[in-house]
Design a protein around this nucleic acid. Sequence first.
DNA 1: GTCTATACATCGATAGAC
DNA 2: GTCTATCGATGTATAGAC
Lengths: 207, 207
Amino acid sequence: MSHIHSETEKKILAAAKEVFLRRGKDGARMQEIARQAGINQALLHYYFRNKDTLFATVARHLIRDFLETIFSSQPEAPTFREFLQQFISNYIDHLSSNIEVSRFILWELERGGDVMVEEIRALQEQHGKGVFPMQQRIAKAVAQQEIRSLEPEHLIMSIIGMCAYPYIARPVVERIFRLPDVTSREFRDRRKQEVFQVLWNGIRRSS
Amino acid sequence: MSHIHSETEKKILAAAKEVFLRRGKDGARMQEIARQAGINQALLHYYFRNKDTLFATVARHLIRDFLETIFSSQPEAPTFREFLQQFISNYIDHLSSNIEVSRFILWELERGGDVMVEEIRALQEQHGKGVFPMQQRIAKAVAQQEIRSLEPEHLIMSIIGMCAYPYIARPVVERIFRLPDVTSREFRDRRKQEVFQVLWNGIRRSS
DNA sequence: GTCTATACATCGATAGAC
DNA sequence: GTCTATCGATGTATAGAC
């Protein structure tokens, strides 16, 4: 993997990222990417053989950045309760200010999720043990009896599902439930609180 | 809205439903729909002026059926606890045996969700009061102190998000978490139990 | 109503001059 | 490296015979 990036190549990658995020792989037009990069279509094919190559490069970067932001730098909270609260807050804030990335990841999942899976695997190796960093944190909390016995994978699915849903089903949430803009401070704070309250009471040992 | 359906029209609608479900609006080919219906492309345009018209008709039917199955015929359980448990079970089973429909709804949401919103509004009028049937059931449970005070809309988002996530992120779930096929009996039963346990403990009053 | 044949538009990709 | 011009494939839609 070459890391020598000419000025033109950087412009192309930046333009491609924007267009692919906005329109998806199939919706994106090579012409639009070229125009946005201030070059012509032939030069685009000179740098990246074809659309597939260009898309693969962009998708890999986008997904890697997303995963690293969310799962790599995890809150170093002393208790699992605080860890959970901070993770939910970070995750909702990040989804909220990167709505196009969430949509892009959905597209990628519909396409089969291959890039997603590969990047997660790479992240796992990087952190050793071949598991999600978060999986270990949860397993530890169970072992130390901070929370009731459960399968970490299921808890992770629950957290992500609850946090991500409003951003996936935004039209329904905003127009049917008549809730405020899902990116607004008001909505985010309310949602964070509700997600945490349900989850924490749902997994704590005291029940 | 005409309800006179010729034999050919029915064949077209059935074929279009299958192809649109499998490939989405943009991925679907009029040629493929024609072939599957056993006719030619010209006849397709004779019945439905263009692709948009055909898609709109199919999408409306698909989404209406989905919404009616899930939200119209609700469990008539005496307690909210049982209601919740049954709803989760029905919803997960339905998603599981209609994976293509879930994917189709995601596509529709990404497109702006207009058809979805219109059909939900229609369903609301049909049930009076201008709200989700489920919204009322939750509000009642709060009023009768079966569960703690909360906004019904947030609880609905939590339920749907937790149930739907595995079917949205299927590649990650099955390949990274190494969980069984999300449509398997084994997985569904485990997921139903986990979702219910978290949610019920998360909203019951006793906490 | 149903067909064959074809027009017309779009888009990714390449040839070839500079 | 960068450009203009154009090819070739694909896909929607229509013309016109039966």
